[in-house]
Nucleic acid binder design. Structure first.
Lengths: 216, 216
DNA sequence: TAGATTGTTAATCGATTAACAATC
DNA sequence: TAGATTGTTAATCGATTAACAATC
């Protein structure tokens, strides 16, 4: 029974499932039960069955799940077959790293162009991706409708860049700038990679651990 | 009333609070109520008071919270004053970006060294951080006890590198390799940055949006 | 003092887990 | 068929929200 409203927790688990399923395929596993999958992922079988049942009936009673089928279902839910187009704005080390190593294509995204304001940087190709002058970004987006912009620019220009690109029809921003982009637009989705949040969380746990040991 | 067991959700919100509080300080705000903070962050006042009350009593009745005090409390909870030492393993574009742009020091971490196996790369300094040969990592860690390793190596060597460093006493791994590091050690904390999970989540929402529009 | 706002207890809501009939 | 395992309904658990006495 498909649900209309999917909780955030479920959505965040989908990429985890995908990674695990790819791993199982890699290891030649063609069938798995919710019990076994749960054991391997540290989830309860119930949760796994509940999660998938939000989107449809992907298993077979008495048998389990066909790994490749399930993988394709999950990939489909995540829109990986849609070929969303991507442009990277800001080609510093991080932008560079994403162009070279992330593998947009393997994940079903189409990385089309990159932009930077440094004349030393634009005009070149990086791993086959042309890098254009940021000054031409707005025009370019109007001529080349783009689904997603990866925001890897310095913090101080992040907000205005974000506003520019959404005005040019971009529907999703993958935000690496570590600021909270409040664009006030319901139709634009921002997904943040907050590096510092992650490291601080790690700091919390190490700190906790130290406090525990001291109080023993 | 301090709680012993803090939920993960609360912990993940702490860095958000910190960012917001830094922002308020930057804008010269010296006092804020849970109501106003909630409005600005999109949380309920109740939740904010509940969150902070896990760690102590940081506010004043009838007044609210002193922004700088609260900021310092949160930073303290996150262990930012502890000066955890950090080494980066893998100096590709991403490792390079983290050394140059992340700002470990401003966040209270002490970035001490970086390692890479490429002779073109090790032997140099990057932004004042020495880059050593990965072959010497194990020895170096034994001589220089290190709290955290940033793992920015290629996927295929991620697991063995992780095992090496925890054997040398590293207590936390900031993992950028997009694999699930199952180290089976309760005393070592792994914090993941799964780029692809994040982008796939964005893909899900854009895909949903399209489906919604089509079915209208 | 009166007004504001906290910290905390109680109520609600949502997510996870357990149970089980359906069925491969 | 018997055994296994799903999808789903019900029960539990935990997190969020609401309410309010305490107090600055």
């Amino acid at each position: 029974m498909k649900k209309e409203r999917i909780s955030n927790n479920v959505i965040r688990r989908l990429p985890m499932y995908l990674r695990k399923l790819d791993d199982l395929i890699y290891h030649g596993v063609d069938r798995i039960s919710s019990g076994e999958l749960g054991k391997q992922m540290g989830l309860t079988p119930s949760q796994i069955r509940q999660d998938f049942s939000c989107f449809g009936e992907f298993g077979q009673q008495g048998y389990g799940y066909r790994v490749t089928d399930l993988r394709d279902q999950v990939a489909g839910i995540l829109g990986m077959h849609k070929g969303f187009t991507v442009a990277i704005v800001g080609v510093g080390n991080l932008g560079h790293a994403l162009i070279g190593n992330f593998g947009f294509e393997e994940q079903g995204f189409r990385l089309v162009a990159a932009f930077d304001s440094d004349p030393e940087i634009y005009g070149n190709n990086i791993a086959g991706i042309p890098v254009y002058d940021s000054a031409t970004l707005s025009d370019w987006l109007k001529r080349n409708p783009t689904d997603i912009v990866v925001l890897t620019v310095p913090r101080r220009i992040a907000k205005s860049m974000a506003e520019t690109v959404v005005d040019c029809g971009v529907r999703g921003i993958w935000n690496f700038t570590n600021i909270e982009l409040e664009l006030g637009r319901q139709d634009v989705r921002v997904e943040n990679i907050h590096f510092s949040d992650s490291l601080q969380t790690l700091g919390y746990f190490l700190s906790e651990q130290e406090n525990m040991e001291k109080s023993k």
